[in-house]
Design a protein around this nucleic acid. Structure first.
Lengths: 210, 210
DNA sequence: CTCGCCGTCAGGGTTTTCCCTCAGGCGATT
DNA sequence: AATCGCCTGAGGGAAAACCCTGACGGCGAG
């Protein structure tokens, strides 16, 4: 019996293309979803062997869907499909128990290989992704989530929403120097060169609306 | 002789999927590009019948690539492939001479239909897009003060990706003062108070990745 | 052929960000 | 008790962003 695969991506065009790619490899695509919730629903019904989930989907993103699917169908191997190679995403996903992490910029064979590997009980990460992980290991002997404190996250949201340091100080009832201090710490922890990096991070994490 | 198609998308996986979709329809995919510049280079060499360009690509986006391709190969019909249905960009693309505007959330048949339509000399817009266009036409008497020029959009992308004004000037081969000038105009047109607003706008419009 | 928009560049100004260092209080962990 | 992380705050300086004004050549529309 062929391997049963669930495919989730909000772009129907991309989804169909991937379906063709997988079918050509002899895989049985048993379901397609356009968002995370639909993916969870379909997975709950069929509990496929593999669930290939796009990271950036509306309603519920790939990571959220992965969490729920792995709870209801522990035997389903989840592979995340993503546009970016950000190491923090990978760490979060791996910590959650995702079996594969594949970047869309890679050749389709990468996804096919990922599926066969996770079916054998192994974990598969796209070359670029694993390289990032290795570099992270070498750089700091331990993989650190580099999490922001709650206060820093609060400041982060305000910065990303366009507030100046002075405004933030006023809003939080602290001195400008303190707000500035938080801002500096955020830049350090995120390894961002400037405000633009802060905003992109905040949006990626869903901390602010668009 | 089969229709010759150039395919440009930064995600190799998506690109391959689309290639399969198009080949299944009897189309001849004569080239694949991972960014706008590569697409322009390949198009200049082969001048295909149709160029299917993803909007959100690194180095040069789909609209920029479309502009250059249409200059060097006037006979090549350009179809933009995009994640978003933003009316402003549709209008700009149409004004530029793009023959098709297809949204990735649509079924693959939408792209196939678009190709056959533009080959017949017609214009094709995805259903959701054309509805927005009609609405825009109806409300046309109003002026759009916040429409960015192509140069401004170029600067916008660099700002949003974290580049400083000095770096942007170097990258574009213009003076720092000119880059600063563009930056100022962007802030005005977007009614944004600072960099954060620029980044959020760029991400909303899908002009930069993550 | 004007007129306006675009892209180019400049001077000169204020404000904000970015980057150091340093330090006290406070709560939790060791 | 001592240490550590977090929040708080400050001084001071370099860089970048922000905001005016003004200018000039090009190019397309009226």
């Amino acid at each position: 019996m062929a391997t049963r695969v669930l495919l989730a991506d909000d772009h129907a065009m991309v989804r169909q293309g991937l379906r063709l790619l997988l079918q050509r490899e002899g895989l049985d695509v048993v379901g397609e979803a356009a968002d995370g919730q639909e993916a969870v629903r379909l997975a709950t019904e069929s509990c496929p062997d593999v669930a290939v989930l796009d990271y950036g989907m509306p309603v519920m993103n790939g990571l959220g869907a992965a969490r729920e699917i792995m709870q209801t169908c522990p035997l389903t191997k989840v592979i995340l499909l993503t546009m970016h190679t950000d190491d923090r995403y990978v760490l979060e996903a791996v910590r959650l128990g995702v079996k594969g992490y594949v970047v869309k910029t890679q050749a389709p064979t990468d996804l096919v290989r990922a599926i066969s590997e996770v079916l054998r009980g192994l974990m598969y990460l796209s070359p670029r992704v694993s390289r990032l992980l290795v570099e992270a290991y070498l750089a700091k002997s331990e993989v650190r989530p580099d999490r922001l404190t709650s206060r820093e996250r609060e400041v982060l949201q305000l910065v990303a929403s366009g507030k100046t340091t002075k405004e933030i100080a006023g809003l939080l009832g602290i001195s400008v120097k303190t707000a500035e201090s938080h801002r500096t710490h955020i830049l350090r922890k995120l390894e961002a060169p400037n405000t633009a990096g802060i905003v992109r991070y905040a949006i990626r994490q869903g901390l602010i609306q668009d």
